[in-house]
Amino acid sequence: MTASVPIEHGLALAAILFALGLIGLLVRRNIVYSLLSIEVMLNAAGLAFVVAGARWGQSDGQIMFLIIVTMAAAEVAVGLALVLRFSRLFKTLDGDAASRMRG
């Protein structure tokens, strides 16, 4: 087996990706970008699984990644349908426009 990427590097990359995704989710008001940011966060989590799986030499990490990808695909399907309805209803893509359910 050739020298592998050290686990710290992989986890650091996953952390940076997750942080970027989170910041994007919190900062962007456009809901398409919100969905995009969530995808980034999901992939960051997936990367962490893969790295951990490689470290212990087990396939669980890759199986988890496959599950995450499947779930992400489903989530995007639902999410985009919501975006479509949202833009029809509010004539905008600004997430803050839909704040009628406040206390």
């Binding site: 989170l22 989710l25 919190l26 008001r29 919100s34 997430g95 803050d96 839909a98 704040s99 009628r100 359910m101 406040r102 206390g103």
Partner: peptide, 18 residues
């Protein structure tokens, strides 16, 4: 007090969750 926190804005909820 609590109903002030229910703003209806999804990004606030995401922040609170984070």
């Amino acid at each position: 007090a609590l109903h002030a926190s229910q703003s209806g804005r999804i990004r606030w909820y995401a922040t609170a969750m984070a």
